[in-house]
Structures are given as C-alpha cells and as structure tokens.
Simulated scan of single mutants.
Amino acid sequence: MPHLQFEINKKVAKETKENFVIEIRECFSEVMDTGTDHIAVSIREYDKYSLSIGRADFKDDICLMNLDIREGRTIEKRRELALRFMDIVKNNFGIIQKNQYLTFTEHKGEDFHLVEKYLASWESGEDPLV
C-alpha cells in the first residue's frame, strides 16, 4: 500500500486536491504497474515559511514528497514517477519543479497492512487486493 505524502506551504482548494489525488493515483498505477485501490495519498498544507529547500527563496512555494512504496521497482521506473509527479504538482499547485524535493522509502510488501490482509511483494501487472 504505497503512502504518497505531499507537503506544501500554501493552501489549495478542495477541487484542486480532488483532481490532484486522482491524477497521482492514476500516474502511480500506470508507471508502477499496479492497481489503485491500495494507494494512500496525504496532502499536508503548511504556512508559507514552514517548509524550505536550500536552493529556493523563503518566499517561494515548496513541495516536499515522501513516497513509501514496496521494493522491487527499477531506478528508471522510480525516476519516471518522480518526474511525472513533479509535473502533476506544478500543474495542480503551481509549484515549479526546482522547488520540489522527492524521497522514496522502500519496504517489503508485508510492511503494508489493510484490514483484509498485508500485501505481498510487488509483481508486475498485479492487483494487490485480489
């Protein structure tokens, strides 16, 4: 169950968040070759000066992303996902890519639990809830 966490230093409309979550889930499913029902997304909004990246001005909009995913994806797939997520953040939240920072944390499938079961290791084309 990937947990895709987005921290931004601005407030955004409910409709923007809804669209963002849909785009993020669809993108993750497509790039990582998995279903969507197990994808968790968090959006955390902070005050302007509560987030920073060294190369950005303190007045700039910032997005920090922490993606907890199951291990097994190639660096090429992770890089593709990172760049596509950065575009989605830019298009939905208006935050330029140089002011975004993304970290992957990989876990064994058994580290992800839903009420039905824990997840198995990732396999291409899977639906982990079946």
Rank of each mutant, 00 (worst) to 15 (best):
R55P: 04
G72V: 04
D127N: 12
I62A: 00
L81V: 15
F85I: 01
L102G: 06
L81N: 08
I96S: 14
N92E: 09
L64R: 03
K77T: 04
R78Y: 02
A82K: 12
L81Q: 11
L102I: 13
Y118D: 11
D60V: 05
A82V: 12
H113D: 10
D111N: 06
A82W: 09
D68R: 11
R55M: 07
I69N: 09
D111G: 00
K90V: 06
N92K: 13
T105I: 09
W122E: 01
I95Y: 02
T105M: 05
C63W: 03
L102W: 04
A82S: 15
R55T: 06
F93E: 01
P128D: 14
I62T: 00
M65N: 11
V115D: 13
Q97D: 15
V115C: 13
V89H: 00
D60T: 03
S124D: 06
K98R: 13
D111A: 11
I95W: 03
E126S: 09
Y118W: 14
T105C: 05
S121M: 09
L129M: 11
R84Q: 05
V89F: 00
N66I: 08
R79P: 05
E76N: 12
L83R: 02
G109A: 13
I62W: 00
H107C: 10
T103M: 12
H107M: 09
R55A: 06
V89P: 01
E80T: 07
K90W: 06
P128M: 13
L81P: 09
I69A: 11
N66S: 07
L119R: 05
E80Y: 02
H107V: 07
R79Q: 14
T103G: 09
G94T: 14
L114K: 08
Q100F: 01
K90M: 07
N92A: 07
H113G: 13
W122H: 04
G125L: 01
A56V: 01
Y118N: 13
M65F: 04
T74I: 05
F58Y: 12
K77I: 05
Y118T: 15
A120I: 02
P128Q: 13
I95H: 02
D57I: 05
V115R: 12
R70C: 02
N66D: 08
E116H: 14
R70V: 01
K77F: 03
E76H: 11
L114T: 08
D60N: 13
D57V: 02
L119W: 10
K117V: 10
I75D: 09
F112Y: 08
E80P: 05
R70Q: 06
T105E: 04
R70G: 00
I62V: 05
G72C: 13
N66V: 08
E123V: 12
T103L: 09
F104P: 10
H107K: 13
K90C: 07
D60R: 02
T105Q: 06
L119D: 07
H107D: 07
E76A: 15
D60S: 10
M65T: 15
L102Y: 04
E80V: 04
E116P: 09
A56L: 00
E71K: 13
